[in-house]
């Protein structure tokens, strides 16, 4: 069942007030696969991934219609515990956003919030998470210094470690490398290849080359609609849709 559907949406609409930002989005995300969402600014790709962990709930006047499921369960079911949902669906943002705390506390934060007090358990999980985020070797000797002293690339991997610490099943990444230099970007991309063994990853990126390098499947969004989704190889060598081809060859956008 390694390729079973982890996240799925059916006829999903999303509104900011009266404005329909997403229209009729139907797409499946397979377990242990990386799916890249591409499209010009304002096409709805970030809005879409924020529907998946209900981050958009925090914006007043927004509304969702249609179906969005995690392991077949309705993400928008009445009474669903959103905190527990977000524990299962971690998120990494465009700009690294470490807390002004130590490296250790940054990674331990989610566990502490969830009531974990066992010191040995915390230490073990923090180490595993930092290893998972390919940061451990660089920070193991300064775990109790401020995270703000790390480089941008290290801070972003710290944020990934922080997301991993609570053992999510899905990892949403919203342009995780757009603020990073090429070396740090490469580390994040290598990490994505490693992480997909254990997680389902959905990444929003403006870099076509990055989508091509890291993802198994690519979805092209345009003006709030899903235009085409296919294997990344097909999308970048022979997309079926003319709009997709025009976008990825730089003819518009």
């Amino acid at each position: 069942m390694s390729n079973a559907i982890k996240v799925a949406s059916r006829n999903l609409d999303f509104f900011y007030g009266d404005f329909k930002a997403l229209e009729n989005i139907s797409i499946d995300f397979e377990r242990n696969r990386v799916t890249a969402l591409i499209g010009p600014s304002g096409c709805g790709k970030s809005t879409y991934i924020r529907c998946i962990n209900r981050m958009n709930d925090l914006i007043p006047g927004t509304r969702v219609a249609g179906e969005l499921t995690l392991d077949g369960q309705d993400i928008y079911a009445p009474g669903l515990d959103v905190v527990s949902l977000r524990r299962r669906i971690g998120m990494v943002f465009q700009k690294p956003n470490p807390f002004p705390k130590t490296i250790f506390e940054n990674v331990a934060y989610g566990l502490r919030v969830n009531g974990v007090r066992d010191k040995a358990f915390l230490e073990n999980r923090v180490e595993e998470s930092l290893k998972g985020a390919a940061l451990w070797d660089e920070v193991k000797d300064r775990m109790h210094t401020s995270a703000m002293g790390l480089s941008g690339g290290q801070q972003q991997r710290l944020c990934i470690a922080r997301a991993l610490a609570i053992e999510p099943e899905v990892l949403l990444m919203d342009e995780p490398a757009s603020a990073l230099d090429p070396i740090a970007t490469q580390k994040i991309e290598d990490l994505i290849h490693e992480l997909k063994q254990n997680f389902t990853i959905i990444i929003v990126t403006h870099s076509m080359q990055q989508a091509a390098r890291v993802s198994d499947r690519t979805a092209f969004f345009y003006m709030g609609k899903l235009i085409e989704v296919d294997s990344t190889k097909t999308m970048f060598t022979n997309p079926a849709n003319k709009q997709t081809e025009d976008y990825i060859t730089g003819r518009f956008g």
């Binding site: 076509m208 080359q209 970048f236 060598t237 022979n238 997309p239 997709t244 990825i248 060859t249």
Partner: peptide, 9 residues
């Protein structure tokens, strides 16, 4: 130029 799709072909 890292071409894609029809440009690559």
């Amino acid at each position: 130029d890292q071409p894609m799709a029809v440009d690559l072909r």
